[in-house]
Design a protein around this nucleic acid. Structure first.
Lengths: 189, 189
DNA sequence: CGCCGAGTTGAACTGAATCAAGAAACGTGG
DNA sequence: CCACGTTTCTTGATTCAGTTCAACTCGGCG
């Protein structure tokens, strides 16, 4: 089983005490393809570490579902805006394959933040990391074309393309499936 | 003079020690309308607290400048993505009126984080706040129309509209000035 | 063998950008 | 205080990129 402490330590090293306290909170769970580990309208209180499988965050607009983010092995999954704000989430989280996950209750983690300064420091860096990702996504929508965003995705998450259908990727990039198909044809030459 | 500690305490209360340490870092400065307090390509190391005036963050694309964010009195200004990542910034920060500001070196603040747990905790909440704002902006681009974004701005920052010209607002919303003019005509009826 | 979902491709349509011209607001110097 | 030039905003006409609608291809699977 993966450890949450290992995930945290990507951002900053932790004392043994903090590591142990964190790891004591984890529970391994598994769900089938198609399962929603979080639904819009609900407050998100759990963070999932993805050990095996692929997942996505999405929401509905006029009946179509629009993908916001993809997750691969080793990444942490949550409806962060809800987790952080305590308000109901706008998003759903769906497993796109059978998945194995490590579950952690975020309120429990927050309690540990108050106890361990080094852990809270790591939590701060993690929040900054989330900010930077969100900022980057914003930037890519403002500064890049759909084609460039597609090429970016190819570069940063090449594995995703084999595991996820085109419609999801198109909505992630902000265009229709039809348009993405044309862009791909264009890229091929 | 405004105090940085007061700004921080919007998010979480601080001990007297933390407050004093923070406030000891501030310097009051003033610049005229049009001055760039940060330029793209440079690494951002300072945070400014806006005491008097209006400012914006913007970048260039194909010669046009595109506004990313507006700031009013009481808000903290920085090229956050650069401040947090330590990489050169994509953005410029421009004063839209003569401004009075409080300047703080972020590296110094980070040193204080290591010393004072309560301050770092506050810094974590602040980073989360930044994340939530960025997320909200993302969401507004994905889920709302330009018209809705305009109405939102009217509601959340009504003062801005009197103090900033239409072109800046249009690019902030993600459309051309021409289109915004039409939307306004439409709203008037 | 034929159905079904996923992807591609063509044609018509639409909303926003662009181009361009006119009106209004603003500041500056005479 | 007015006249002129500059900038800002509005409005109309045209153009274009991307959506929508629909038909067709392909591969997997009962």
């Amino acid at each position: 089983m993966h450890k949450i402490s290992a995930y945290y330590q990507q951002y900053k090293p932790l004392s043994i005490a903090s590591q142990d306290a964190l790891d004591a909170l984890s529970k391994t769970v598994a769900f089938p393809k198609g399962y929603l580990i979080h639904r819009q309208g609900q407050v998100c209180r759990e963070v999932f570490l993805l050990e095996k499988g692929v997942a996505r965050i999405f929401y509905y607009r006029d009946g179509n579902d629009i993908t916001n983010q993809f997750f691969c092995e080793g990444e942490a999954i949550a409806a962060m805006e809800s987790l952080y704000s305590g308000k109901p989430s706008y998003y759903n989280i769906e497993l796109l394959e059978d998945c194995q996950l490590v579950k952690v209750n975020y309120r429990e983690v927050e309690k540990l933040y108050a106890q361990y300064h080094d852990l809270e420091s790591c939590g701060r860096v993690l929040a900054i990391h989330c900010y930077l990702e969100e900022n980057e996504r914003n930037r890519s929508f403002q500064m890049l074309t759909a084609k460039e965003r597609y090429l970016n995705l190819l570069k940063t998450q090449p594995g995703i393309l084999q595991r996820v259908n085109l419609g999801h990727i198109a909505s992630y990039i902000g265009i229709t499936q039809v348009q993405l198909s044309r862009i791909r044809a264009e890229i091929m030459g």
